[in-house]
């Protein structure tokens, strides 16, 4: 019989660096999970993405066990990296801090596809471009579907 799911916890933790301090400790500890077990597993599974902030979805079962899925890095992190800037703009509509190409947006969209609510790469690209706009990062050139 399948185990009963009692809840989900969504965290974003640097790869290879989970430890029992907040938010990992209180979020999992309050559900009666063994935090140390989670940290050991998470750090081993993400050792090749050391230091990158990664979203992780933890499923909690009624017997106090858990399973987790590590997702792709946030699009915002990838955009900062692609644009080679450290931060976004205070006035994204008026003051731009950098730019990326549509090819770069496509690359990010392809990486993010499994985690986005999008069936087509084009839809995913529009979402990534939207995040870029909110950060004051311009997407240079014409969108592939406009050409």
């Amino acid at each position: 019989m399948a185990k009963e799911i009692t809840g989900y916890v969504k965290l974003q933790v640097k790869g290879g660096q989970a430890n029992p301090s907040p938010p990992v400790g209180p979020a999992l500890g309050s559900k009666g999970l063994n935090i140390m077990e989670f940290c050991k597993q998470y750090n081993a599974r993400t050792q090749d993405k050391m230091g990158q902030v990664l979203p992780v979805l933890i499923t909690v079962f009624s017997d106090k066990t858990f399973e987790f899925v590590v997702k792709t890095p946030p699009a915002a992190n990838m955009l900062l990296e692609a644009a080679k800037v450290k931060s976004g703009s205070a006035e994204p509509n008026r003051k731009k801090v950098g730019s990326v190409t549509w090819d770069q947006v496509k690359e990010i969209a392809q990486v993010k596809m499994p985690d986005l609510n999008a069936f087509k790469v084009e839809s995913a690209m529009k979402m990534i471009a939207g995040t870029a706009r909110s950060m004051g990062i311009t997407v240079s050139g014409k969108a592939p579907w406009e050409v």
Binding site: V13, K14, Q17, P22, V53, P74, A76, L79, M135
Partner: peptide
């Protein structure tokens, strides 16, 4: 949209872990 942007930027200034909530982070 700003949930992800804040996580990206705060992680650049020493914050290393975040909890996603209904309201934000």
């Amino acid at each position: 949209p700003f949930r992800e942007i804040l996580i990206a930027e705060l992680s650049e200034v020493g914050f290393d872990s975040f909890l996603e909530t209904d309201e934000g982070i």
